[in-house]
């Protein structure tokens, strides 16, 4: 076995995902303690030139037409062959729509333990420790990263992407592909709906979450957004209920936003949502639950009931504009 820390570089349609840099930053910390190298693993087809700025000591590239798109079973087989041969100390994945299922499948296939929702890592007296966020970020769990091998699925927040970048390209090694699969095939990609506003470009977002309770209450929020000259966005439960279209979804499976003002109404601030709003200039949160994690990232907040506050606020904003 080796003391190396492997990072599965995540990319989608020619773009390295931000989480890959976060993984590299975490891997550097682990490698410093384990005494191994940070090794990047890039699976894909025609991926030369991709991931030239990831902070790894070596980049292993597995180039295979079969790996051109993310097909879960093919990617899993390809990684299983590589990882069982190299036996790294820890392998890092994004806890994402790509990494989470690879890590789970490999945990069973390789018999290596898996730690999910991992937000940070650290070393203590030679031991490698994970710190995971559970219960929507309300609780942290800490413990030893199992030995001799473990898989970590990481969420953003503990490391900056910048810490996982390097200026000169890493040495690249080509490795043979062992991709096999056949039970899953890609039919097509469906592009995001266009024609609606692009919430990632809006300066003022009035965002609603589960606290809005039902579809009829959206109108009240639309009035406030209109008064402010902004648009309405939402967290996952609101979109899942069909109260607003997917184009308005802010979060891990929706869009990252960076408005000047993000007004969060009845949003708890689960990590999947929080990670997508951290670039907002100012977050103001309205939530009756004083312990909601949204107040940990908001600059201002109130525990008033949004149904009491929003009509009053809309009125005051209108008056102020006159």
């Amino acid at each position: 076995m080796s003391q190396d820390i492997y990072v599965v570089i995540e990319h989608l349609r020619g773009q390295v995902a931000d989480i890959s840099y976060v993984l590299c930053a975490a891997a550097r910390q682990l490698a410093a303690a384990s005494g191994g190298q940070v090794v990047g693993v890039l699976l894909g087809h025609n991926v030369q030139g991709l991931a030239q700025d990831v902070a790894v000591d070596r980049l292993l590239v597995m180039d295979d037409p079969q790996l051109a798109d993310f097909i879960p079973d093919r990617y899993q087989q390809a990684l299983a062959g590589l990882l069982s041969a190299q036996a790294p100390r820890v392998t890092l994945f994004g806890d994402t729509s790509i990494g989470a299922e690879l890590a789970g499948g490999l945990s069973v296939q390789l018999g290596w333990p898996l730690v999910s929702y991992c937000r940070s890592v650290r070393a203590d007296d030679g031991r490698l420790l994970y710190i995971s966020q559970l219960c929507g970020g309300k609780v942290m769990a800490e413990g030893e990263i199992p030995a001799p091998h473990a898989l970590l699925a990481m969420v953003p927040g503990g490391f900056q992407a910048e810490q996982g970048k390097r200026t000169s390209p890493p040495p690249v090694e080509t490795v043979a592909s062992a991709a096999v699969g056949g039970r899953i095939t890609l039919k097509q990609y469906i592009e995001p709906e266009s024609g609606d506003v692009d919430i990632s470009k809006e300066a003022i977002l009035v965002s609603v979450g589960r606290g809005i309770q039902n579809a009829d209450n959206i109108e009240m929020v639309q009035e406030l957004a209109a008064a402010l000259g902004g648009v309405v966005s939402a967290s996952r439960p609101v979109v899942d209920q069909g109260w607003l279209p997917t184009t308005r979804l802010v979060g891990k499976s929706g869009k990252r936003v960076k408005p000047r003002l993000y007004l969060a109404l009845g949003i708890s601030g689960a990590p999947e949502h929080a990670e997508a709003i951290t670039d907002s200039q100012t977050i103001i949160a309205v939530n009756t639950d004083a312990s909601a994690p949204i107040f940990d990232i908001a600059r201002y907040g109130t525990t008033l009931d949004l149904f009491d506050l929003v009509p009053a606020l809309t009125e005051k904003v209108r008056q102020a504009k006159q």
Binding site: M140, E142, G143, A150, R299, A312, E315, K316
Partner: peptide, 30 residues
């Protein structure tokens, strides 16, 4: 087997919590 042991569980320490605005709806709106 296959899951990690938990050595410690705790509530996250928060670097900076929101400044809370108190009052009646009209006052907070102001």
């Amino acid at each position: 087997s296959g899951g990690p042991a938990v050595a410690r569980m705790y509530k996250p320490e928060v670097a900076a919590r929101a400044t809370m605005l108190d009052g009646k709806p009209d006052e907070v709106a102001d």
